[in-house]
Design a protein around this nucleic acid. Sequence first.
DNA 1: CGACGTGTAAC
DNA 2: CCTTTTACACGTCG
Length: 360
Amino acid sequence: MNRIILHIDLDSFFASAEEVRRPDIRGKVVVVCVYSGRTPDSGAVSTANYKAREYGIRAGVPIKIAKEKARGLDAVFLPVDKQYYQEVSNRIMDLIEEQGDRIQQASIDEAYLDVSTKADESWITAKKLAEKIKKKILDQEGLTCSIGIGPNKFVAKMASDFRKPDGLTLVRPEYVKEFLKDIPVIKLHGIGPKTASALEEMGIERAGQLASVDQAVLEEKFGANKAKLLFEKALGVDDSPVERQEKKQLGRMGTLQEDTRDPDRVMEKIKELALDLRERIKEKKVRFRTVSVIFVSTRLEDHSRSATIPETDDLEPALDATRKLVESFLSENPDMVIRRCGIRVSNLEYGGGQMTLEDF
DNA sequence: CGACGTGTAAC
DNA sequence: CCTTTTACACGTCG
């Protein structure tokens, strides 16, 4: 069965959503930030609009640096308002879902849509569907998006990335290799800085080169599994279905007011984060068996410790386990000073946690 | 095989 | 100067 998949990516979503509700900031440099609360300007940029990107202000840049880059410009710095973006996102995802057969939300601002049936296997019809989706999102929410159309999720994703903002790129199966050929390996979805550097050391810079490397050579360097994955990316092969995915873990992290290795201070923060996590556990009606604590040291290395407990939907027993994990981690790492910490639950069971026949 | 900790990646 | 959240693969251990 030949598929037609759309990848829909909302353009600089958080910043654009702010521009929608704040007409007064439209046309300005808009920078949506995660403030860590240590000092007034500590934290990092979450999303910058395209105007801001012209000045090198992009996701991940420290707020302090972003403000230097924005000096003298008409710029607005805003804190993230996840709740609001989530509401907007939900409406858009519903609208997208109506236009296809199956949706897979990849994140708050991205989704894959299988339109194979809806588009009657016609690429022309699929393109019309994509145009319809773009128009609806613009009319109903005032937002632009970039859409990629391809024979699978990977190619659709690469296509949506090809032209943005407000792009629409269609890659038919017979043009996949040609489309990918000159793309630098670092831009292939799933290949990050580590893998790209390793490839570069082998003289491989573009997808086309990667596709024609000797298999044995790639396996030597990366192992058989990863080598196979790399070839598939270079060739645009991806059989993974578009399907709804249940979260496998839920967590919250935060930055400590000041660096510490006092278990009480760490626990205080974790309890604060747990209040939030408790709400989300309730909302999702989820039960869990594993609780983890995550530590980020002052050197920005991250570590975690986890424990498996009897299945529950209650964070109290989890917090007891957490305290032990925090204490043992700190005593095992006498030189480590903690900058950020978090709590996470995993090994999730959905559906209210009633006993089922399986339990007998 | 399940549990655990780390590395890599994407957002 | 340095945020947040999630996924998945891999090695290791018991």
